[in-house]
């Protein structure tokens, strides 16, 4: 299986993730796009691991997965906390950092 194929797929997934982060206002959907981006990176890792016949790539995916899980937990807790204060989850309403 030519590597360029997998690289291309991975890049497309990543670009879709970027689009999701930039264009959606629902923070949950933004998070999900983030997961999409993680996945694209994982795909690339595994593909290269298979190409070079080295197992370390897959191990890295392992770590990425656990870290992503931790991040999702904290992030969702954050969203819930903000919702309790603001009563809305529209990202554009969270503009107190305006300078």
């Amino acid at each position: 299986m030519p590597m360029s194929y997998f690289i291309g797929l991975s890049v497309v997934m990543f670009a879709m993730g970027i689009l999701g982060v930039l264009l959606r206002r629902n923070p949950l959907v933004v998070f999900m796009s983030l997961e999409l981006m993680f996945n694209s990176a994982n795909l690339l890792f595994v593909a290269f691991s298979a190409y070079h016949q080295v197992l370390d790539g897959q191990l890295f995916v392992f770590f990425v997965m656990t870290t992503a899980a931790a991040e999702v937990a904290v992030g969702l807790a954050l969203i819930v906390a903000v919702f309790k204060a603001k009563r809305t989850i529209d990202l554009d309403q969270m503009s107190s950092l305006k300078g």
């Binding site: 982060v21 930039l22 264009l23 990202l91 554009d92 969270m94 503009s95 950092l97 305006k98 300078g99």
Partner: peptide, 17 residues
């Protein structure tokens, strides 16, 4: 320059990208 600090997270994300 201050106009760039509009407080919108998505704006910042745009800048990062």
């Amino acid at each position: 320059w201050r106009r760039f600090q509009n407080g919108y997270i998505r704006s910042y994300a745009l800048t990062i990208v």
